[in-house]
Nucleic acid binder design. Structure first.
Lengths: 219, 219
DNA sequence: ACCTCCAATTCTGTATACAGTATACTGAAT
DNA sequence: ATTCAGTATACTGTATACAGAATTGGAGGT
């Protein structure tokens, strides 16, 4: 396997997203390009390119002449993204050949069970959730769809830290994963899709309440 | 209404898309940044920013170290985009309040009828189609969804010129628009959604046959 | 005290310059 | 004749420089 060259712009994107999900930036605040470029140790050119790329994905908003700013987060925004992802993942399931779904159903069941059993660190839990949904939609022949789902999920990373410590939410998600995978194992794709939508939509009220408490309000 | 300042990058994006839908570029060909910047009369910096933005939307693909290239078009690509748009517009309808749909239903019926009557220039027809779908999804409260739909439709502009002269396709689309709007007027949203999906999916085989004939193959 | 206008500064948007990598070409060796 | 190495060229990726707009601060007036 050849080593994959990574351009500076891509590294900047990744680093910014890491810091975003760590909560390093005040959402809604404007971005000072020179300050950020100095902080990251790069010049403004690749930084701006990264910011433009991220602004296409809803992580950053931009006003002509006034530069970039961290896109505000909120209940509305979260819900909108979740609605879209739910629809797109549902589409992915619809497009996936039934035999593929039947093939991966056992693995999905197993992953869901592991998920329930191991209530470990928040990061670990999140990875587990990602892996489940990733495997679930891995059989879709629509490549552009996969990219789109990934893009929208990137926007959700801004809400990642709100999950921390919310084991309640995670346990419920685990149960829903079991429902999804068992429906697939039974060959009932429509039921799986419904369960999948529920899985996403149920995350909304929890995050909303988490938002009320823990999000720093701009001053 | 204040005039809206438009940054050079945005103008470049628009101009590129105009040329793309005019078929000025050989799809699949690599992009020479300096040549294109000279041709557009701008420097490479805003051009690259525009290219990055467009590459996020599937109009341009990019290989690390080898620069940008015009994303190849083809039956597969077209179908993938259409599947996604159909799902997203369906979601938009689902999210739109029923009373709003009832309110715009008469206008939609009227637009559909006009559509059928006036089989004028290809451009005009296309605008009509755009206006119909735009009005249809205008009631969705999900702003991000609207952006997403617009983004995916941008990618379809690469196929625009294939519609030229295909009045057959357009007449059929008109009939489908009537079906959709009449279902809404009858208050049957699920039926409208199904008709909407059909409307999109029916465009695929037509475009595929058009692709076979009229797309220049790389040499 | 508050408002207005002007200046100074800060920051974005754009252009140009530089560096490193990929590609094309030339020539020699087998 | 073909293939491989070496070199030259072209182009991308990144840094720096410049121009103009937006914001901030203060001086002067009401």
């Amino acid at each position: 396997m050849s080593i994959q060259r990574q351009t500076l712009r891509e590294q900047i994107e990744a680093e910014i997203m890491n810091r975003v999900s760590a909560g390093d930036f005040g959402m809604g605040d404007s971005i000072n390009e020179v300050a950020l470029s100095v902080e990251l140790g790069v010049s403004r050119t690749p930084l701006r390119e990264a910011l433009i790329s991220l602004s296409q994905q809803g992580v950053i908003s931009r006003v002509s002449g006034k530069g970039f700013r961290w896109a505000p987060i909120g209940a509305q925004d979260f819900q909108e993204a979740v609605q879209i992802i739910a629809a797109l993942e549902s589409l992915a399931l619809t497009l996936t050949p039934a035999e593929y779904l039947a093939k991966i159903a056992p693995q999905l069941v197993e992953q869901a069970r592991e998920f329930t059993a191991s209530v470990s660190s928040a990061q670990e839990i999140h990875d587990h959730d990602d892996a489940f949904h990733s495997l679930l939609t891995s059989g879709s022949p629509n490549k552009r769809l996969a990219e789109g789902i990934a893009s929208y999920k990137l926007a959700l990373r801004r809400y990642e830290r709100l999950y921390v410590g919310n084991t309640d939410l995670m346990e419920r998600a685990a149960a829903e994963h079991e429902t999804i995978s068992e429906a697939l194992q039974a060959g009932d794709v429509p039921a799986a899709i419904e369960a999948l939508k529920d899985n996403w939509n149920n995350s909304v009220p929890r995050i909303i309440s988490a938002l009320r408490g823990s999000v720093p309000v701009r001053g």
